[in-house]
Amino acid sequence: MICHVHIGDTLEKEAMPGIVDSIEKEFGRPRRPDATGLYVISNHTGANASLAFWKDVIKNGAAFANPELFPWTLANSACGYIARHFGITGPNYTFTCPPENQEHINEVLKQAAEDQERLGLEDTLIIIID
């Protein structure tokens, strides 16, 4: 299943609860989380948190920056959040590319299809975040 979600300028940690809710409402929960592959495609997951974290460092100094922001600076933090929410322990990918780049998305789909066959995955969740 392919899901397209939008976070824009919202901080990743604030956007993710709504995103997993909407995924669950539309697609339900994976039948077998241990046999589910998760593929996130985004050009900017981690970017908003990185900017916010560094602004916080500038404001408060390196020794007093907010540590809660840091894990969200990593581009794969969104994918990790989704995995924890659904308990998905299968392959977990974060691809960086402009979400309008269909050629790139096709490559991701190819990898997902291969994983499904090679690993016997029951569900494949592809999430495009812009």
């Binding site: 997951t45 981690g46 990593l74 581009a75 794969n76 977990n92 990918y93 974060t94 691809f95 960086t96 590319c97 050629e103 790139h104 490559e107």
Partner: peptide, 15 residues
């Protein structure tokens, strides 16, 4: 050819 960018933190090279 295909260009893939993997942003999987400290595992990214293996990916």
């Amino acid at each position: 050819g295909p260009v893939q960018a993997l942003s999987t933190a400290c595992t990214a090279g293996n990916y």
